[in-house]
Design a protein around this nucleic acid. Structure first.
Lengths: 200, 200
DNA sequence: CTGATATCGATACTTCCGGTAACGAATCAG
DNA sequence: CTGATTCGTTACCGGAAGTATCGATATCAG
């Protein structure tokens, strides 16, 4: 990840890492988790599926959990949030995009495993926190822009509101064990807009 | 849990289960997870800490994950929701109570492990789904009562709104890695009330 | 071209942990 | 008393995470 890119740039001595290995491994994780569930994701299975040796995996990621975090990031990365000058439209954009990611098969298990891994290992936890922050920052940006425009009431606490926007999709997926569909997104947008703006 | 109570009532032949074992095991799980983290919760460690044998654990819970689910339920069980005739007050009640539970040390790790375990094992998943449903039902009840009173707009979708209420606390705890404090609860209550009622 | 370095795949290994089996002792119902 | 089920103790099995070592290969510095 960061390590890989840095090494690819600085180009120290020795045989360079084969680019094929990294991609194949991340793919294998997603495939295994989608087809057979989290329990099937063993390092041996990932190595076999990717056509790669186990030590090659450990040269790239310090643990299985770190590998899973990296795989998750290929699925649910940060989004770009174009400024459309309209809170409702931007909320609909970001929530629709994210709910589409969440509806991909296997994403629920990937996310659940991510949370579990973060609880286990402190190194993974920090990486996960940074990732989560990156993911939620766009929501915060949308709200801040709208507040600057006067569309969002000045007394609204942006951080609380950002949590209110980001949380329901994940909760619907992981706690309520259901897919966040378009109707749910519509309902959320209306509720949130009413919560943070001056509309009646 | 259910199994234990049923057996304690029907009283079949044979040596009865020692009540001490169940409680000591659940305590040990919470203590271990709080003091040393999830990784320290091995069945051997739980047995040792509880002064109990490993087979005694497996006579009560079919797997380690089931044991953790049971331990979690002792921490974050369902709440009673007295009808106070006022949406804002009832929301404040339920969110304050729940955020107090979440602030107990170790609850974050317990919850994260719960989600991870649900992703791994289908039996645990169903048990967890039932538990989650129990937990969120009170929120739904509050909203339905308020809608019947006319306090909540008739066009509000109760299920979506219930998710909007239940999700932020957990999200703040697990994704944003921060404790849901009283100020956050206040902010949420105001945002949600504005979202679902006729107030401007 | 040469030597140093770091990768590759393959294999074997250690270690830890979840879960089970087998025991004798204890405690109930009938 | 008899049969059933629990208890704790101990030992064991199997799987999976992570490491070590190997010869072979690829790149860089000089």
């Amino acid at each position: 990840m960061v390590d890989t890119q840095a090494r690819a740039v600085e180009r120290g001595p020795g045989r360079p890492r084969e680019a094929r290995v990294t991609g194949a491994a991340l793919n294998a994780v997603v495939e295994l988790i989608t087809e057979q569930g989290v329990a099937a994701v063993t390092m041996d299975a990932v190595a076999a599926r990717a056509g790669v040796s186990k030590p090659a995996l450990y040269r790239r990621w310090p643990s299985k959990q770190a590998l899973i975090v990296a795989a998750a990031e290929t699925r649910i990365g940060p989004l770009s949030v174009p400024d459309r000058g309209d809170l409702r439209a931007e909320l609909r954009d970001v929530l629709s995009s994210r709910s589409a990611s969440y509806r991909l098969p296997g994403t629920d298990r990937l996310l659940a495993e991510l949370i579990g891994a973060a609880a286990r290992d402190s190194a993974v936890r920090e990486e996960y926190a940074a990732y989560a922050d990156r993911v939620t920052s766009e929501t915060r940006i949308i709200l801040e822009r709208a507040q600057a425009r006067g569309e969002v009431r000045p007394d609204v606490d942006i951080r609380s509101a950002a949590t209110l926007v980001a949380a329901p999709l994940v909760y619907r997926l992981l706690a309520e064990r259901d897919l966040p569909d378009a109707r749910f997104v519509d309902n959320l947008v209306e509720l949130i807009v009413r919560a943070v703006t001056h509309e009646s």
